[in-house]
Simulated scan of single mutants.
Amino acid sequence: MRISDQLEGVLADCSTLPAYHDLDPDQATISNATPKEWKVFNLWAMDERAEPERRNARGRPRCWPRSRTSSQVFFSILEPREIDSGARGAVRAYLRYYLGLKVPDEAPPSIRVKDEWHTWQENESVLFDDSWNHEVVNDSTGERIVLIVDVLRPMPLPLSVVNKGVALAARYVYGRKVLERAAQAREQPAEPTA
């Protein structure tokens, strides 16, 4: 299955997608900063397949296989006129990879990493150190959708062993809680829109 096919299945049921801060309360300062929502659909969290992704696959091949180097994989849907005012990852354990999947042509969204700006393009990617300050701006009239993959940072021994240990601990402390919240969000009926 191609990533774009998986995304189409997710977008068909977009009204049930949780906001990022509903899955990860630590993201509230960037995800809940405006009336618009930053929605996410987890495929993997800390090396565990997300339950919504299992159900969404409907017997088809999964678009993202298990990997020893990726810890999180999710679709990120940033609504029009939304600004993520800046963040930085808490640890230097991983690198963050963004792949542009749906990018408005008019006033395309952009991302700032440190002091360098990148304009999103479909099928183009950006890889950066998540511990660096970064912000996303979607000043367009359309949604910006990217695939985000957090990849364990390559490190020499013994740091690589420590990094893998931190990732394993995060699986139980962080990843499972995020996946439980994602499964609960999928089970709740969508609120009617005005």
Rank of each mutant, 00 (worst) to 15 (best):
F41V: 07
A33D: 13
V149E: 11
A167R: 06
L152C: 12
S15C: 07
E191L: 13
W38D: 04
K39D: 10
L23A: 05
Q72L: 11
G165H: 08
E143H: 05
Y20L: 15
R181M: 11
Q72T: 12
S76Y: 03
T119L: 09
T16G: 13
W120V: 00
Y174S: 06
V166S: 00
E82S: 13
P158M: 04
D26F: 12
A28I: 09
M155N: 11
L7Y: 04
P158K: 04
S85M: 12
Y20M: 15
A12T: 05
L179F: 01
D129V: 00
L23W: 05
P80F: 06
D47N: 15
L17N: 01
K114W: 03
D84P: 00
G100K: 02
D5G: 04
F128Q: 02
A169S: 06
I83H: 10
G89M: 09
S85Q: 14
H134G: 06
V40Q: 12
E187A: 13
S125H: 14
I30G: 05
S140G: 08
C63A: 04
Q121C: 04
V40W: 08
R176P: 10
S15V: 02
A45L: 01
A33H: 14
K102R: 05
E48T: 15
G89N: 10
A12L: 08
A12P: 00
